[in-house]
């Protein structure tokens, strides 16, 4: 049972971490994140980095879809824009990640704003189709703008440096990716408690009355597209630094669907949701892979026979979760928390 501190002033009420307990837990979490790469296997470190990148992109998509209510199937292509931009800049001008990352984010934000223009006229499925069309066009550009993208051959990252250090191991990249993911999430959380976050939600919940109450729909829809794409662009750049090779096939439409699924499974419109969703979507396929490996001694050729089943099991898991808790993993987490807060007085 946790005893809540009395909220003494509005400034406390407006703070993110209202109680000491919350701050302590946050500290423990940070310590774990810090210790993680020193104690885990390379494989887990690899997964940790992947989750970090996915958290950034999912948090960005959540700003657009979960908070502003504008559906988008462009996130994968936006990550591609960020990836190509950063690699091209790094290779051409031998720039550091400290420069290529923000530039990749900014260019992607610009592309996102342009792709978001139809949102001023269309909503829902129509917007989904419009953004999908945009992502097909971007894919076309990745393939055919050969002087920059080298077409289907793709690009190799030749200059992966940050502050004079070669980013040549997952270990080093972990310490780039995780802090950025923390910043990304904190930014989104902060945004949510200011006029901009409220305006996003107002646009989502009732766009017409939002306008009459002083929210400029044009500005906030485009701002949301821009911000969400900025996140995608940064995530894409990190992805490129992580894998060192990018081709047009690195960012197919499935990536966009992956991120939509992540925020839905995690819980749309919450801050925790995209984090949990990104972890879930990254880990479950890996766990299924491990499971088939474990079954190998029991069932002959388990890998061969069960591999096709992985997709099916993955799909069933997602649907199952949604049936069980339509508000996603974040809601499950909230219920667990509430249980422990009231325990043992109420169960």
């Amino acid at each position: 049972m946790r005893i809540a501190d009395a909220v003494s002033s509005y400034s406390d009420d407006e703070a993110i971490f209202r109680t000491r307990t919350q701050r302590v837990w946050m500290g423990i979490l940070l310590a774990c994140l810090l210790a993680f790469p020193f104690v885990v296997s390379p494989y887990l470190l690899f997964l940790g980095c992947l989750i970090g990148i996915a958290v950034i992109s999912a948090t960005g998509l959540n700003i657009l879809v979960g908070l502003t209510g504008q559906i988008s199937l462009g996130q994968g292509a936006f990550m591609g824009v960020g990836a190509y931009t950063s690699v091209w800049l790094a290779n051409q001008f031998a720039l550091s990640l400290a420069v290529t990352l923000p530039l990749a984010g900014l260019l992607t934000a610009l592309v996102g704003v342009i792709v978001g223009l139809p949102s001023l006229r269309v909503k829902g499925l129509y917007l989904a189709i419009a953004t999908m069309a945009a992502s097909v066009i971007l894919h076309f550009v990745f393939v055919h703008w050969e002087s920059v993208t080298a077409g289907n051959l793709g690009l190799n990252l030749q200059h992966a440096k940050l502050f004079g250090m070669e980013l040549d191991s997952d270990f080093k990249l972990y310490f780039v990716i995780i802090p950025l993911a923390l910043i990304a999430v904190t930014g989104a959380r902060n945004l949510l408690r200011t006029r901009i976050g409220r305006a996003f939600i107002a646009v989502r919940d009732r766009d017409i009355s939002a306008e009459v109450l002083g929210v400029n729909l044009l500005r906030y829809k485009l701002l949301s597209f821009g911000l969400s794409s900025f996140y995608a662009g940064c995530a894409g750049a990190l992805w490129a630094y992580f894998f060192k090779v990018i081709t047009p096939e690195s960012f197919p439409l499935e990536v966009s669907i992956f991120y939509l699924a992540a925020i839905i499974v995690g819980g749309m419109g919450t801050i925790l949701g995209p984090i949990l969703g990104a972890a879930f979507m990254t880990l479950v396929p890996e766990m299924l892979k491990v499971l088939t490996l474990l079954l190998e001694p029991i069932i002959a050729n388990a890998q061969v026979h069960l591999a096709p089943m992985k997709g099916v099991v993955f799909g069933i898991l997602i649907v199952g979760f949604l049936l069980f808790e339509p508000h996603g993993l974040a809601e499950i987490w909230r219920k667990i928390q509430r249980f422990f807060r009231l325990w043992p007085f109420k169960t």
Binding site: N190, L191, T194, R195, I196, R198, A202, A210, L227
Partner: peptide, 15 residues
């Protein structure tokens, strides 16, 4: 939200 148009906070400061 009603006070939206009287507030000035920009994107960076909000983040």
């Amino acid at each position: 939200l009603g006070a939206h148009s009287h507030l000035q906070t920009g994107l960076l400061s909000a983040l």
